[in-house]
Computed example of a mutant assay.
Amino acid sequence: MKDRFLKQARREYGPGQRAVALVLLAPVFLFLMPCIFVVFGAWLDAWLEWPSILSPPSNVLVGCLLILLGWSLAVWSMYGLFTIGRGTPVPLMATQQIVVVPPYTYCRNPMVLGAMGLYLGVAVLFGSFGALVLVLLAACALLVYVRRIEEAEMVLRFGDEYRAYRERTPFLLPRFRRRS
C-alpha cells in the first residue's frame, strides 16, 4: 500500500492538468460547501430555535471581511502549491516539492486556515449559528485528517526535510517572526 501511494504521489502532472483539476474543484469548495453549511445551518437554527449570530449590517461587514481574508489566504496557498510544489491541494495530484515560502512559513496549513476563515465568514454573513457549528465541526474533522494522515504522508514523501519544517513551523495558528 505504501509503495502504491508513493508511486501515485511521485507522478508529476503538467500545469494544464493541474489547472483543470483546480477549475473543476473550485465550484465544490467555493459554492457547494458554503451552500451545504448555509442550508443545513438554517435547518439547525430553525430546529433548535437558535438566534442569529449578528444583526445587519454587522453580519455583512464581519462576514465579508472573513470571506475575503480566508479566500485570499487560500488562493495564496494554492499558488505556492501550484508553482513551487508543482502540485495541487488534491492528494491525487500531490506536490512534488515541499513548499516553504510564505504563507507556508507562517503555518504549515494556511490553506486550511483560509478555508476555515472563508466558511466562517459565510456562516456569519448569513447570521447562522447552526452554520457556524457545522463549519467548526467540519474544521475539526479536517484538522484531525491533516494531523494524522496528511502529515504522515508528508514525512513518508519528504522525510527529514519535512520533519525539520514541522519543527520550526506551527501547525495552524500563524507565527510571524521579525527578521533581524
Rank of each mutant, 00 (worst) to 15 (best):
V90P: 00
V90D: 13
V90H: 11
V90Y: 09
P91R: 14
L92E: 15
L92R: 13
L92P: 02
M93L: 15
Q96N: 12
Q96T: 13
Q96C: 14
Q96H: 14
Q97C: 09
Q97A: 13
I98T: 12
I98D: 03
V99F: 02
V99S: 02
V100Y: 00
V101Q: 15
V101R: 14
P102M: 07
P102K: 07
P103H: 05
P103L: 07
Y106D: 04
Y106G: 02
C107F: 07
C107P: 08
N109W: 10
N109Q: 13
P110F: 09
P110L: 13
L113C: 10
G114Y: 10
G114R: 05
G114P: 03
G114S: 08
A115R: 06
A115P: 00
A115L: 14
M116Y: 07
M116A: 15
M116P: 00
G117V: 10
G117F: 05
G117I: 11
L118I: 05
L118T: 06
L120N: 10
L120D: 01
G121R: 07
G121F: 03
V122G: 01
A123L: 10
A123H: 02
A123G: 06
A123D: 01
V124R: 01
V124L: 07
V124Y: 03
F126C: 06
F126G: 00
F126W: 11
G127E: 00
S128G: 04
S128V: 04
S128I: 03
F129K: 09
F129T: 14
F129Q: 06
G130Q: 01
G130N: 06
A131E: 00
L132E: 00
L132M: 14
L132D: 00
V133D: 05
V133P: 02
L134I: 11
L134E: 02
V135R: 04
V135Q: 04
L136K: 09
A138Y: 11
A138C: 14
A138E: 09
A138W: 10
A139C: 10
A139I: 10
C140Q: 15
A141C: 13
A141R: 13
A141N: 08
